[in-house]
Each structure stands twice: as structure tokens, then as C-alpha cells.
Simulated scan of single mutants.
Amino acid sequence: MEADMAVMNSKKMDMTQGSLWDKILIFAIPLAASSILQQLFNSVDTAVVGRFASSQALAAVGSNSSLISLMINLFIGISLGSNVVIAHYIGQKSEDNIHAAVHTAILVAIISGFFVMILGQFIARPVLLLMGTPEDVIELAVLYLRIYLIGMPFIMLYDFGSSILRSMGDSKRPLYSLIAAGIINTALNLVLVIVFGLGVAGVAIATVISNVVSSGIVIYVLTHEAAPIKLDLRKLSISGGELKKILSIGLPAGIQGMMFSIANVCIQSTINSFGSSAIAGSAASLNFEFLRIFL
């Protein structure tokens, strides 16, 4: 037990002791890098199909970018609720509440992820049609979105699992898991598109697999942490009190994160009205803009 506590203490950062400036930078830089990498997953898909598939494939992936960004921002915001609640309990040294909040957060991630995955299979086409996706692109766009949504449980697990780790000051291991997933995503994109010629389906499958990897690493880390942050998959349950606290913080944060993305969805709908060539051109230019800003 003492060895476990020593390992946990070596990974966590005590934000209540000493100077805050260095701790804020050490904590925030990996956090910002993780957000950038998660947003760039779709950009990698766009780049690969744009270079090695067709303009219709590029338009199909590009027409989903704003919609995917909206979902990611919503879930990152909601997962922030678990981060705040668990960090508060860690500061209070309330082990029972930490245990309840950790297992509530993970089970909520699993349930909500499967709910969005299943619901998305039915509403993918209506939503893309509502956005005015052109006829020569709609089938590929629906295919990409439906495959992408299969990975929603794993995206949710990564977001909530990472929030739990960050609640104890560990923002590095979530970044490392995302870097590993990003490398796998890029490699699989190239293999599935160039070697197997899967096009849109290939980049979507690669994204799902990379999400499985990132969430798997985070869950592995949590199941091997020391108590009280340790995750025991056999003890998953929802505490009504903890769920209420998580959602009271997370939902407003998620909705706030969605606002800019909603505007982008409206802009994308307008671009869609100009046809698939315009969508492909917009997707390529946005990819360049992302790289220019981040690099």
C-alpha cells in the first residue's frame, strides 16, 4: 500500500503547496496540447483522403468537421465537471467521496457514449441533410459519421478518464496516451487508404481504433492507480449526489464550449449549398489554417 501511494504521489501535483506559476505551466501545457491533438484527429483524416482519395471523399470528411468539433467540445466540457468535483474531494481528503465520484464518472461515460453511438446511427443522415450536404457527397459523409460514432464510448472514456487523472494534477499521462493514439491514427490512415483503398471508411476506422487505444491506456492507468483514485471496474455504480454535482458544473461548461462550434455548423451549412467542390476547398483551407495556428 505504501509503495502504491508513493507511485501515485510521484505522478500527482500538489497545487496547494509552494509557488503556483511553475505548477500552472507544467499542468496547463500538456492539457492544451491534448486538446489540440484531439481536435486534429479529424484534420489528419481530411489531409489523408484529400491527398490519396478523391475530392468527394475530402468533401465528405470536411462536411463532418464542424459537427464532430461540436460533439468533442460538449463532452470535454461535461467531463470537466468530474475533474472539478474529484479535485475538490482530493483537497478535502475525502476518500469515500473520491471513490464514488470516480466510479460515477466512468459509468456515466460508458452509458452516455453508447447512447450517442446508437442514437447517432439513426440521426446521422437527417442531420447531414439538414446541413445541406450535397447528393454526390451525402452517402460518403453518412458512412464516415456513422463509423466515427462507433468510437463515441471510447472518446467519452478518454475524456472522463483524463479528467480524473488531471484532478490530481496529472496532465502528462493523458497527453502521452493521445500522442500514441495520434501516431496510430496517422499510420492506419495511410495504410487503410493507400494500401487497401478504403477511402472515407478507412480514415473513420483508423480514428475509431486510435480512440480505443487512447481510452484503453487511460483506463489501464486508472485501474493500476493507488486508492482512493483507483478504478475498480467491478464496482462501477452511479451515485445520484455525485452525478448531480458533476452535471451542475459540466453541462454549463459543455454548452459554453459548443457555442463557437454551433456557429461553425451554420457556416458549414452555407458552404454546403455551393456544392462538393466548395466543401473540399473549404476543408483543405481549414486544415492549413489549423496547422498554421498550432504550429
Rank of each mutant, 00 (worst) to 15 (best):
M156T: 13
M156P: 13
M156A: 15
M156I: 13
M156S: 15
L157Q: 09
Y158I: 06
Y158G: 12
D159A: 13
D159Q: 15
D159I: 07
D159M: 15
D159V: 11
F160K: 12
F160C: 07
F160P: 03
F160T: 05
F160V: 07
F160L: 09
G161C: 09
G161W: 07
G161A: 12
G161S: 11
S162F: 05
S162C: 14
S162H: 10
S162Q: 11
S162W: 02
S162D: 08
S162T: 11
S162L: 08
S163N: 15
S163T: 14
S163K: 06
S163Q: 14
I164W: 10
I164Q: 03
I164G: 01
I164E: 09
L165P: 00
L165F: 01
L165E: 04
L165V: 03
L165I: 03
R166C: 10
R166V: 06
R166E: 12
R166A: 08
S167W: 04
S167V: 07
S167E: 11
M168A: 10
M168Q: 12
G169S: 05
G169Q: 03
G169Y: 01
G169E: 05
G169C: 05
G169H: 02
D170M: 12
D170K: 05
D170C: 09
D170F: 11
D170T: 06
D170V: 04
D170P: 07
D170L: 08
D170N: 15
S171E: 03
S171V: 03
S171C: 07
S171I: 03
S171F: 00
S171L: 04
S171N: 04
K172L: 10
K172R: 15
K172I: 08
K172H: 05
K172S: 10
K172C: 06
K172E: 11
K172N: 09
R173P: 10
R173H: 15
R173F: 13
R173A: 07
R173L: 13
R173Q: 14
R173V: 11
P174Y: 03
P174K: 00
P174N: 07
P174R: 00
P174D: 08
L175G: 01
L175W: 00
L175N: 03
L175E: 00
L175Y: 00
Y176M: 13
Y176Q: 06
Y176G: 02
S177P: 04
S177D: 01
S177G: 11
S177F: 00
S177N: 01
L178G: 07
L178S: 08
L178V: 05
L178I: 08
L178W: 01
L178T: 03
L178F: 10
L178M: 15
I179K: 02
I179G: 02
I179F: 07
I179A: 06
I179M: 09
I179D: 02
A180I: 12
A180E: 06
A180W: 00
A180H: 04
A180V: 12
A180K: 00
A181K: 02
A181Q: 02
G182Y: 04
G182W: 01
I183K: 08
I183Q: 11
I183H: 13
I184V: 15
I184E: 15
I184Y: 14
I184R: 12
N185A: 06
N185V: 12
N185H: 13
N185Y: 12
N185P: 13
N185W: 10
N185L: 09
T186G: 09
T186Q: 11
T186F: 14
T186P: 13
T186R: 05
T186V: 14
T186M: 14
T186N: 12
T186S: 15
A187P: 06
A187F: 13
A187L: 14
A187Y: 11
